[in-house]
Amino acid sequence: MTAYLVTILILVCIAIILGLALNLQWGLCGMVNFGMAGFFALGAYAAALVALSGAGTLAGIVVAALICAATCGATALVSLRLSDEYLAILTLGFGEVIRLVTLSESWLTGGSLGLPGIPRPLWGWVSEQNYELLFLALLVVVVLALFLVLEVLIRSPFGRAVRAVREDDTVASTLGKNVTMLRVKAFAVGGAIIGIAGAFHAYYLTYVDPSQFSAIITAYTFMAVIAGGRGSNKGLLFGAATIMCLIEGSRFLKDIVQVLDATQLASIRLILIGLGLILFLIYRPQGFLLEYRLRSSSLLARSSLNGATRMHDFKQEAS
């Protein structure tokens, strides 16, 4: 039982990391990324190849983050004049390109056979039976670190400027913000986080192949962000956990329901997952939590305590 829960929690953690990335790119900056699965694959393959070459699993994570950041940044740069729907199409196409490259360049990626035997981080520190617990602990640390970094980022001048771009890029640019650079930066940082998620996916499965990176990953990530409340990282933690509980928890349905056979229940299960999400969106369209907002009341309270420094902040917010 414990090991099954550990597996689910590991999958939840990876989903949360992906969700954090999308929450930055789409939730905060308003840039739709339909190529999540492709960038995720890129990170997984990069980490797998580096780790398999013997350079170490940490190097794998770093390289995966850098490559994904560079590719995401480049995608944002290419889509300079594209926004909303057009960016969605571009990222969708880009994700598909990555999938096809992993499928076709078999000298590098093993083609459809994939790459087996990927080394795992901290392997050998504990016994094989307890390894997954250690892996989960490592992932929780990574999730917490990323969560804190992003929370600070959201509250920083950069975070406010990025949100201003999301709300109205003309206004932001009129106020002297470099909209292009802000978009490229936000997308690249999101890309780095997707790369980290990809690396941990590769290390956990110890095997990557193109069939793991289907478009459903993009869909699940969007669901997690929407369920959590777009822009809210705290909400995302609930959102990702809810989606995974819905997906995995529904497996227990057939242990209770004896009327239908396994084949019928398998199909009904997927319908129920969809139904659950639709109902959730009808009754809680705003998600679990709202995004962080700077409030004038709290600002005024603080400024009365420490007027000079807070006024400085306030000016930055206004600009």
Partner: peptide
Amino acid sequence: GAATAGAALLAAP
């Protein structure tokens, strides 16, 4: 919300 979602998992054993 979280409790409902987790109920299935907890009931498992």
